[in-house]
Amino acid sequence: MRLLSVFCIGALSAGNLASAGSWFGTDDVNVSDVQKVPGDSPLEFCDKDRAEDIVVIEKVDLSPNPPQAGTQLVIHASGTVNAPITQGAYVKLVVKYGLIRLISTTADLCEQVENVDLKCPIEKGVLSITKSVDIPKEVPPGTYNVFADVYNDDDTPITCLQATVTFGMNRNSAESVNVDDL
C-alpha cells in the first residue's frame, strides 16, 4: 500500500511494505490516546502529544477515501519538517489483517522516501507531496490495521501514525455476476 509513503512523510511504499517483515513478530507500536490527522483520510496520530515530533503533518487527503482495491489512489499530504531527517532514520511498522500480524519490521526510512521522489537528508521547511498509487485488485477483503512509528537516526520522534482500512468486494465485480451462473 503505497499510501503509507505519504502517511509517514513519504516514508513507505507498497512494494516494500508487502515484502517486508516477518509473520507474527514481537515489535509492537505503543498506541494510546489517538487524534485524527486533518484532512480526508483514515489516518490518526498515535497519541495527542505531538510536541516532540520533527514533522508536523498539517493535512492528508486520499481520493478515493476509503481506498478501494483495483483503483488508483491519489494522496495529497502537506506538513512542516522542523529539523533535518538524516541517514539512519527508521520506521517501526506493524500491519495486521484482523487479528493476524502480517508485518512487524523496522525499515530504513531514507530508502523508503525515494518511492515518493525524496532523498535524505530532508531539510527543514514546508513539504507538500502528491502521489498516485495503483492499489492491486487482488487485495484480500478485510480490515487492515497499520501502525508506523518513525524516528530520526538519534531516536528523536519524527511522527507516529495509525490507520484502519477495510477493503470489501468491488461493486463492479458484484454487479457483473450473472445469476444464471450461480
Rank of each mutant, 00 (worst) to 15 (best):
N30F: 09
I85F: 03
D47H: 15
L43V: 08
P84C: 06
P67E: 03
Q68N: 09
A83E: 09
V81F: 03
Q72A: 09
L43E: 02
P67G: 07
G25V: 00
V60M: 04
Q35G: 06
K48E: 12
S63T: 15
A51C: 01
I75H: 02
S19R: 13
G70I: 02
D40A: 10
T71V: 06
Q87C: 04
V55Q: 00
K48N: 11
P42T: 07
H76K: 15
D53W: 11
V55L: 04
V55P: 00
T80Y: 09
D33W: 02
V81S: 05
V81L: 05
T80I: 12
F24D: 15
E44S: 11
Q87A: 14
S32A: 12
A69V: 05
W23S: 15
P66E: 02
E58A: 09
V34F: 08
T86H: 10
D47K: 13
P84K: 06
K59W: 07
Q68L: 12
E44N: 13
H76A: 13
T26I: 14
L62V: 02
L43T: 01
L62R: 01
V81K: 06
N82G: 04
T26F: 14
S32N: 11
P64K: 03
W23H: 14
E58F: 07
A18S: 14
N30W: 06
P42H: 05
I75Q: 09
P38K: 06
G39E: 07
Q87S: 12
K59S: 09
G70S: 00
I54M: 02
L62W: 15
D28A: 13
V55E: 00
R50F: 03
V55A: 13
